[in-house]
Simulated assay, not measured.
Amino acid sequence: MVVVAGALCDGGRLLAARRSAPAELAGRWELPGGKLEPGESPEEALVRELREELGVETETVERIPGEWPLKPGYVLRVWTARLLSGAPEPLEDHDELRWLARHELDSVDWLDQDRPAVAEAALRLTAAPPAP
């Protein structure tokens, strides 16, 4: 089973989402996303998941190299994504969101499987102005 996550970048910052469930993950931070559904491409799944979880419209930009094991039978794949419209809100599975600049990325307790992708996403952060 493929789980997709988005390194949502805007204005030189990366969006971090704090898990509210399940109990073993609650309070830790991740790149938001979710499971691929039958008939979806990973990119389509990511756009759908970010819409459902955050209430925003996005587009995928590039796949971050690598994949990371989750629980048995699940693997995490990450894409960078651009915010097209909306302001992210924690609608599902999260209780807080933070936009983090590169120097702030270590200020939250990332889930272990997200750390390599966050490090790669940090290399892609620029000082671009925020989207309108």
Rank of each mutant, 00 (worst) to 15 (best):
P22F: 03
E62P: 08
H103R: 14
T126M: 14
A81W: 06
L46N: 09
G55N: 06
E30I: 06
R124I: 09
K35A: 15
E92K: 11
A87H: 11
P69M: 07
R19W: 05
L15I: 11
D109S: 08
T58D: 04
L111D: 12
E49F: 00
V108N: 03
S20Y: 06
P116G: 11
L54M: 11
E62S: 15
T60M: 05
C9F: 03
E53W: 01
E24W: 13
P90A: 01
V4C: 05
G39T: 05
E53T: 13
D10A: 14
R82M: 00
P42T: 11
E89Y: 07
R19L: 07
V2M: 13
E44W: 07
V3I: 14
A7I: 00
E40F: 12
I64Q: 05
P72E: 07
L105R: 01
T60H: 03
L46D: 14
K71T: 10
K71H: 09
L31M: 08
R77M: 08
A7K: 03
R115P: 09
W110Y: 10
A45I: 11
D112I: 01
P32A: 13
P132I: 10
L111K: 06
E37V: 13
A23N: 04
E120P: 01
P116A: 07
G34R: 03
K35W: 13
S41I: 06
A5R: 03
E49A: 12
V108D: 14
L76W: 08
V118Q: 00
A101H: 03
A26T: 12
R102Q: 02
A131E: 02
G12E: 06
E92D: 03
E62A: 15
L91K: 15
R102P: 04
G86H: 12
H103F: 01
W110P: 10
A45P: 12
M1C: 11
D106P: 06
A121M: 03
L50Y: 12
P22N: 03
P69F: 05
L123P: 05
W79L: 09
E37L: 15
E52H: 14
T58A: 15
P32D: 02
H103D: 15
A101D: 01
G66Q: 04
I64D: 04
A127H: 15
E43I: 09
A122F: 01
L84H: 02
G39A: 02
L84A: 00
K35M: 14
E49D: 14
L83V: 00
L8C: 13
P38V: 08
A26H: 13
V47W: 02
V4D: 05
L14D: 10
D114F: 12
P72V: 02
R102C: 01
L50W: 07
D95P: 05
G34A: 10
A122E: 07
R19A: 06
S107Y: 04
G27A: 03
G66P: 05
V47R: 14
A23D: 12
D112G: 10
L123T: 06
S20A: 12
A87Y: 03
L84T: 04
E44K: 14
D93C: 07
L8T: 10
L111T: 09
V47L: 12
P72K: 08
L50I: 10
W99T: 02
A17Y: 07
G6W: 09
E30H: 05
P38Y: 08
E57W: 09
V61M: 07
D95H: 04
G39F: 01
A101S: 14
E62G: 09
W99Q: 11
